[in-house]
């Protein structure tokens, strides 16, 4: 299993990288951590003509905070996000989600932005970003634009990014008030792709009624699914068994998973409802503490 031949460029600045991207057009592919790209190249499922390696763009490796949001550079290794105590304090959902990605050895190399751009519908970082909300910055030679996470994922392994563009930064809002969150997933073995993953972040008012909520599901659609109907339904409510059952009904209608070697569509639908209830319950309990 060896990859096909390709040209290799290793730009030292963002500007140089963007110029190379523009020149190579559809033939060029960015490589960062390579933990998804290199396997598919080794298996010859992908054969880019030209690789542009952004690992020397050290300016894109950062975690920064201001009062309202966390900013994470695209090249930041997943293990750095996992270990960051500031992320844990301000963006706990992310700290909980990252250990589910692959293994220690792949998180040491895999990048935060790379996971988003790869856009596997069962992946952890896309799902938790959808649950917390936020946006990404996408740069090209011409401009830098900001795209909300809701508009970023297009379909399987496809995002809003054009071939001449590069994701540079992710911005995640810091939720205030009585915040609760949870991330959970079911996979065959630790580190495998999730059969179904669920994430929920919510806030409660002083009467323990849900004042803001984002329930999201992974592995059940072509993109991370924000279950908007359920989220609207839960607003202003206290949690009850009846409410959770209503959410489960909505989830079963909303998801459209596929059958494969690992699980049937029916089982994934069942899991989606179970994990949705579980993750809302945990998030609610944590917010109420």
């Amino acid at each position: 299993m060896k990859p096909a031949k390709f040209d290799y460029y290793c730009p030292k600045t963002l500007d140089e990288a963007l110029s190379l991207l523009e020149e190579s057009g559809f033939d060029g592919k960015i490589i960062a951590g390579g933990q998804s790209l290199v396997p598919i190249m080794n298996m010859r499922l992908s054969g880019p003509e030209c690789l542009i390696d952004i690992n020397r763009l050290h300016d894109l490796d950062f975690i920064e905070f201001d009062e309202e949001k966390v900013k994470i550079g695209t090249l930041t290794r997943q293990s750095r996000v996992e270990m960051s105590s500031l992320i844990k304090e301000n963006c706990g959902l992310l700290s909980e989600a990252v250990p589910f990605i692959g293994h220690v050895q792949t998180r040491n190399r895999g990048t935060f932005g790379g996971s988003l751009v790869h856009a596997d519908p069962s992946a952890e970082i896309p799902l938790s970003l959808m649950a917390s909300g936020g946006s990404v910055l996408i740069a090209s030679k011409e401009e830098t634009r900001e795209v909300d996470v809701e508009d970023f994922f297009v379909t399987y392994l496809t995002t809003d990014i054009m071939p001449t563009e590069l994701l540079t930064e992710v911005q995640i809002p810091i939720w205030s008030g009585r915040v609760g969150y949870d991330f959970t997933e079911i996979s065959r073995r630790h580190g495998d792709f999730a059969l179904v993953a669920a994430a929920c972040q919510l806030t409660l008012d002083d009467q323990n009624k849900i004042s803001r909520v984002r329930l999201t599901l992974g592995g059940v659609e072509s993109v991370p699914l924000l279950v908007e109907e359920a989220n609207q339904m839960m607003m202003g409510e206290k949690l009850s068994e009846a409410l959770l059952n209503k959410v489960a009904d909505i989830v079963r209608e909303a998801v459209d998973p596929e059958s494969d070697l690992h699980a049937s569509a029916d089982y994934r639908t069942h899991l989606a409802a179970v994990l949705a209830k579980r993750t809302i319950q945990t998030a609610y309990n944590r917010a109420g503490r």
Binding site: N55, N108, R109
Partner: peptide, 18 residues
Amino acid sequence: TVIVNGSAVRSCLMFAVQ
């Protein structure tokens, strides 16, 4: 698995040139 710059990583998921 080898250690590159102080982190254990898969050497089959890196190109030598990197």
